[in-house]
Design a binder for these strands. Structure first.
Lengths: 357, 357
DNA sequence: TACCGCAGAGAAAGCCCTTTCCCGCAGGGA
DNA sequence: TCCCTGCGGGAAAGGGCTTTCTCTGCGGTA
């Protein structure tokens, strides 16, 4: 690889001058030398060594991002928002997929710190895991102590700036909607228990049901992976145990899509026999059939806000921005069927006693 | 930020020793000093400066990847394959989204070169653009001249190693399938004309139709963005001009999903009135309703192969691996309807003279 | 006892840039 | 004419790390 001194030598100038031409320094250089340098660059196909540059100008310009998986639409949307603001400000993003592995998350914080990022954004659910949370906070604190900026999206464990989708309110919206439609036998397919996103959404849902005199017993909840296959499988388990269910709340849209797949296989009509509610409103939600009724989160905006916080002026006190959830009514949620559903595989069971307000 | 010399000073050793402990060098260090260094690292929350490291050991370990958009399922799958091999070999991936902007692609080649990547993988369609192709090849050649390895996925313009999905054969499969089902009035919603992927798939499709004595006139092709909305819009235009169409081939699954959306809005039943074929077999294809009949490409495997080529031993001659396409029959393609469709909005028109073999 | 070899540690030379500091020179004002 | 100013350019000092080379001191062999 050609180096800067190669270029300088070839152009018959000092490395300093070559550097100034190449970087468009404010220091003036005569046109003649400039030409010579540019010519040498072209001839040698010179590309500056990014590591050397980054080391020399200890500049801190890139921003580190840790998500679960960029190709998951939830994070893809958030990332779109992050990217938009970053690009506007001429920042490079370094995006890491933790695949929801806490250890990997910790490693990536170190890695990004090592890469001298100007700021760090963690997106995605927090964990109910004290030891991990403490470790993470220590690392983040150490990073902030050296001037790094940190913001989190959707996790409350961190003491600094945060952008929070209102998961709890979203769960509440879902619950209220189903109650309004007359459902009582409501099942939930949930993501991993250890995720705060799961428990927050569940808490809101439960609150809505409780307010309406319904309840949400643990036996009507199935925990699985937060993806399509997890949703499909959890739905199967749920229906197996509780054939009289008239509604299923999926704690994200991917699971909801899995649920629709299982229901189709089972031959249960949506929403005539079973209603389905999703969560997140990923782009694909409107394209499944029937189109998914879901709780929308302003994903792109969440990204925009987080990046703005982190690149904008700091604040004395940590800022928490809560962004509202919104119910999007499409075609998968309908009124509770008039009669008890005739279940195909298993014998119809007597309704278990739901309490009434 | 604490530096290595800070650590060394605190531990009462030389920077050399500290470095050896931290990096697990093969050079032996007494346990006592090791302990002291490790303690200092922990106390100072020391993280090595990645740029300095990368500069000092001019090692070239990371691999650069340029895709259209990682969050596009097509590339997400490919990337999964790339990642798998890279992780196995302890390589870091730097992934850049070109968003199908040739200039950005060129910039990213430079950027990644500047970051001293050991290899470069370009995934995604090539362009029918000689000037661009020449420029890109020059840049790649310059990179290879300095020992860099290059592989491309799905583009023939490059002279080096390549992994090629058989787009043409895939188009052929789609055409043959529709002919077998009796379709004659076949429309195509295609990606941008400038992409070789578009023209390759189209060529295969046209070949199949021609062999069966059908034809594919330009008026039955609509070019649009290679995404959902492009597909929806192109479908609308196509149906508007040609209400008697009985089948639509989408040149990728995203467009196919857009087509399904438009057909649903229009009130045309799939596949009873109109058949739809996709291309790629993205994960979501099986979850739309009806499930999408499509041409499968071994996306993950393509990624695996490309990364293997690029990290494995070099070859004297450039290697081209062509990976086969496969037709996946699901529920969107059916036999041609018996009678001419009763079109809702526009008056039924006389069939234009399709030639018969 | 004298010498060789080796283990373990440090000194210092890069890695490739950027940027400050300094120098020479030309032009303009006194 | 002299001095000051300012412009254009180069020398050199980092930036933080790795790694080679060198040095010291010890145990073992002749």
């Amino acid at each position: 690889m050609a180096t800067l001194s190669d270029v300088a030598r070839r152009a018959g100038v000092s490395p300093a001058t070559a550097s100034r031409v190449i970087n468009g320094s404010s220091k003036p250089v005569t046109d003649e030398l400039r030409e010579r340098v540019l010519a040498a660059v072209a001839e040698l196909q010179y590309v500056p060594n990014a590591h050397a540059q980054l080391l020399a100008r200890s500049h801190r310009s890139a921003v580190g991002v840790i998500v679960h998986d960029v190709s998951d639409p939830y994070f893809a949307e958030i990332t779109r928002g992050l990217q938009r603001v970053a690009t506007d400000q001429g920042r490079l993003l370094m995006i890491c997929n933790s695949y929801r592995d806490p250890d990997r998350e910790l490693e990536y914080v170190e890695l990004l710190r090592g890469h001298q990022v100007a700021a760090l954004i963690l997106a995605g659910s927090g964990y109910h895991d004290e030891a991990f949370t403490r470790q993470l906070n220590e690392k983040l604190a150490a990073y902030e102590a050296t001037g790094g900026r940190v913001a989190v999206i959707g996790r409350h464990e961190h003491s600094g700036d945060a952008v929070m989708p209102d998961n709890r309110a979203g769960g509440y919206l879902a619950g209220r909607e189903l109650c309004g439609l007359g459902h009582r036998a409501i099942g939930v397919i949930a993501g991993p228990r250890i995720l705060t996103t799961t428990t927050d959404r569940l808490a809101g849902l439960r609150q809505a049901l409780t307010e309406q005199g319904r309840e949400l017993p643990e036996r009507r909840i199935r925990y699985a992976e937060f993806d399509r296959d997890g949703g499909a499988e959890a739905t199967a388990r749920l229906l197996d145990a509780d054939p009289e269910l008239t509604a299923i709340v999926a704690l994200n849209d991917s699971m909801a899509i899995g649920a629709l797949a299982t229901l189709r296989t089972t031959g249960l009509a949506v929403p005539q026999q079973v209603s389905v509610l999703g969560f997140d409103d990923m782009p694909i939600a409107r394209d499944v059939t029937p189109a998914l009724t879901t709780v929308r989160l302003p994903l792109v905006h969440m990204g925009v806000r987080a990046m703005s916080l982190v690149l904008g002026p700091g604040a004395a006190a940590p800022r928490v921005e809560v962004l509202p959830a919104e119910l999007i009514r499409r075609d998968t949620a309908g009124p509770v069927p008039r009669s008890t559903r005739a279940t195909a595989g298993s014998a119809p069971r007597a309704r278990r006693g739901d309490t009434t307000s």
